[in-house]
Design a protein around this nucleic acid. Sequence first.
DNA 1: CGTCCGTGGGTGAGCGCTCACACCGACACG
DNA 2: CGTGTCGGTGTGAGCGCTCACCCACGGACG
Lengths: 336, 336
Amino acid sequence: MMNSAARPPAMSDVAALAGVSHQTVSRVLNDHPSVRPETRERVAEAILQLGYRRNSAARTLVTRRSGTLGVVTPATALYGPTSTLVGLEEAARVVGWFVSVATIRQFDGDSMHTALEHFLGQGVDGIAIIAPTTEVAQAIAAIASPVPVVLISSASDVPPVPHLHAVGVDQRHGARLATQHLLDQGFADVVHVAGPQDWFDAQDRLAGWREVMGPGAPEHVEAGWDAADGYELGLRMAREGLPSAIFAANDQLALGLLHAFWERGVRVPDDVAVVGFDDEVGAAHYTPPLTTVRQDFGALGRLAVDSLQAAFDGKDVARQQIPAELVVRASSVRPA
Amino acid sequence: MMNSAARPPAMSDVAALAGVSHQTVSRVLNDHPSVRPETRERVAEAILQLGYRRNSAARTLVTRRSGTLGVVTPATALYGPTSTLVGLEEAARVVGWFVSVATIRQFDGDSMHTALEHFLGQGVDGIAIIAPTTEVAQAIAAIASPVPVVLISSASDVPPVPHLHAVGVDQRHGARLATQHLLDQGFADVVHVAGPQDWFDAQDRLAGWREVMGPGAPEHVEAGWDAADGYELGLRMAREGLPSAIFAANDQLALGLLHAFWERGVRVPDDVAVVGFDDEVGAAHYTPPLTTVRQDFGALGRLAVDSLQAAFDGKDVARQQIPAELVVRASSVRPA
DNA sequence: CGTCCGTGGGTGAGCGCTCACACCGACACG
DNA sequence: CGTGTCGGTGTGAGCGCTCACCCACGGACG
């Protein structure tokens, strides 16, 4: 039975029913060792009988811990950010943290400031920021957060601000894998279609490609993250001349390229090889199936939560990177 | 300047600095009319000077409103659920609600129960559940939540439980649009590749297709939501015989079909037309570009939040549906 | 000139919990 | 047989806010 909606049962109600003090109930709830088993039993029964749930607001008020993490993420259904969010939530729940989300349309300083204030006002224990731009990092540096903040990013140049940490998948490494793979397949002329250069991830993928290509690297092309951008670019390339291979900064760009090439009768990988980044759902079923770089978002989430937790406990937090993994499919394998 | 991390400033600190009582500070914060402008000014200045932020835990404790909404969503980067989440968050923020998320791997009663308890323990003001299965609805019916719950679903058979509401995009209508479009194009033999039938959305898309096809409808095929399922099915169809058109329950299934057909040299739409559902990012760039059904997730989020708000305020909540929209692309247009 | 009411503001209680500490009996030890 | 120690439990304060209520003052009104 539910009791009437008047007031949910409080600790004192449980205590009264079990014939103990509120403090003993608290001890039972918090697994304090020194409670006699039979007392514990009686309390547990009273809790069940009343349908008692402890009031987390009261708890937060006195402990100054809300048990909530704030996550800032772009307001899109992009594969990377979304998967990161899921990974984060699962990792957070394992260690008993709730995840509160705020989406933002643009990663400028103002939006960021608003989002952070939003979370700080709520009293979160830590904040994670997914897919940040350089501008974001500056905005964060300016706000002097009383709680730890982690940037989900492989950026090497995160400003050295106290309480600001960074974890990420090693984008540069992933980019090297992709580029090297294309070279190994015998495609000498590997062009990079880069993502928006204010995104850390896009910067790093570009850098990784450059590292492998060395000083003789051709010019890269800059684009957005969307398939439409890749499509436009693909049409232009088909018109103006094709490289032997293209490393696209994400799978959507690659998809757009594939579309344009298919439409123009350019064969992949025969006429031009294509590699993406992300291994999004469905990449295995593009036309042709797309070689790409996979990131372990579960591990990423765990790493982010770990470092937030360490920072929260006042420990030192080491910067950490997760390696990426190449997934080879038909779009980049040299025809026999 | 930050003051030392000892204790964040409280209302009384602001009051002392401004030379008023804590109550006046509260009035300023809550926009109470009867405060003299100059007093208001003084308080505002003190707030700024101390970097004061009101403690939401204390506020929640006394008002019994946490200002937080719980959202349960599947632990995947699927386009539909993700977009819904984003839509919900934006709508919630507009009316001043935070969004806390819990992802679940399986929509069985147990996971659902855990997630709900998780939120109720946190004291959320309302709960939204994205992409529910029939089993979920039963689990919710069993839990007697003290706060309103909204199922994001177009299901017509949501159990009539108090505090349980439902909003959704009209899946059935969308399916009718897709099917009718194929018939209008002259494809008589429209087969449906259905999603998992324990999902409300999958049920409704199937039902919509059936409505249009009438009693002479062919058998539908049941599958999961993934491209891999579509791919397998596509291979089988290419082997065992093709219908004139296929209406797939989502874009990923359609993508898998396209992949299989391309691999087997089956031309789309010449040999078989294909229509999907969702209009996910990239669907415009599949091979060929995919005809599909688009849902307005922003409107969906607003609707969900509205109904939660109405329920929270004790008003009556009418069931509401949002229409879907057909997006015609090359995959379903009869060749001239 | 007393009464009434509205404006601007203060006072105190209490939301439900945890933390620090007091207490009490039992048992060990010198 | 006094003194220490320790398991098991209770007491009271207080976290930072809102809510209900009270108070002072001034102008309007009969």
